[in-house]
Design a protein around this nucleic acid. Structure first.
Lengths: 198, 198
DNA sequence: TTATTATTTATAACAGTGTTAGCAAAGGTA
DNA sequence: TACCTTTGCTAACACTGTTATAAATAATAA
């Protein structure tokens, strides 16, 4: 009796159509505009059908988060195998990570929970400008009193800010059995490395 | 005629009460649970009154974003003035930045648009574990072939990931008249610095 | 003080959202 | 053909941000 198999196959097809419809809607209108009703309309089924495939909306989005990490991992492995020495491997992987993020913005936004609503708003905010200038001038001073006097302050500032923001936001997302004391060490190590490098 | 003055004063009071009520609700239930109706209930006014003070919900949240940056700037200036040499200043500021983020989570979450819904979900995701391991082993190789053989791979990994994630997310939030070529330089410079430091 | 005008405030609606209970229709089995 | 199980839809619930409209209040003029 292939009936059960056919049913499973059909169910899988609907599940797949939910995901492809959702992904299309996300690409057209972004994550914030994705809704269960829109997916239901797209797949020409009623709303509750979706809930027989996914526990809730979050479960659908988690599926894409997994997809995103899978894709990223593949890209990173590829980059890794393109070099032999660890230093080159790491450089290639950093490049790959960067490219992935911007070639798959929808994935990356979801993976790291970037809301993106502040994007337009942040530009015209004097408080942000102050913050930039504040750090930048200090870095200028640092450069002036160092060997590498020709270093670009704006560039170094961005590195520094990224380092800080990265440390913080990673720690917020990934609280994986890692004591606070170690995060303190990470911060100190990173900052010391940055300064030594200037 | 002090009537106009009194009216302005009363209007300001209502405006202030909206913000304090909103802030209390955020601290109790988080940003995702904040709603206009809840604020209206708290201040014992009807919903449209809120819209006579703020254009929309986003405007209320922007007010807190500004507050957040103001607070951060104050903290950073204080940290800066606690030292004389740039290197020490920067170290103190990094520390202050870190402390601010975690002592004012609500602010930082809003300022950087961290959705925080992935927080619990991310922990039990094998894809994330793979990603961690992948980078970590490469860093282990890097350490093994370097002078500082006693360096902590887990620590270095976190530094590296933070650097990458920071670069990406900062660039996503802050697209301030900065050509892509410069971001490439930032990335290269940061990674080179990290490797040299290992 | 009363009538008129301007301001302030609330009710109720619109168009959405995620989620689910209850019922009708179709599919498979005896 | 009669029964039962599975499937799928309608409609509702409890929310959300936002706004048009109407009522109540306060300030001004007669």
């Amino acid at each position: 009796m292939g009936i059960l198999e056919r049913k499973l196959r059909q169910k899988e097809e609907v599940r797949e159509s939910i995901l492809t419809a959702a992904w299309q809607l996300v690409q057209e209108e972004g994550w914030s505009m994705l809704s269960i009703r829109k997916i239901a309309d797209a797949i020409e089924y009623s709303v509750p059908v979706i809930y027989s495939h996914f526990e809730n909306k979050d479960a659908i989005m988690q599926e894409f988060t997994k997809d995103g990490f899978r894709k990223l991992n593949t890209t990173l492995i590829q980059a890794q195998s393109s070099a032999n020495h660890p230093a080159e491997q790491l450089t290639a992987m950093a490049q790959a990570y960067w490219e992935f993020a911007f070639q798959n913005k929808e994935y990356y936004q979801l993976m790291y929970g970037l809301g993106m609503p502040t994007c337009e708003a942040a530009r015209q905010m004097p408080e942000l400008g102050n913050f930039v200038q504040l750090l930048q001038t200090t870095i200028k001073d640092l450069i002036a009193g160092s060997k590498a006097v020709d270093a670009d302050p704006f560039l170094k500032f961005h590195t520094f800010w990224s380092l800080l923001h990265g440390l913080v936001s990673i720690n917020m997302v990934d609280r994986t059995a890692c004591p606070d004391s170690l995060h303190q060490l990470v911060l100190q190590d990173a900052v010391r490395g940055f300064i030594k490098n200037v």
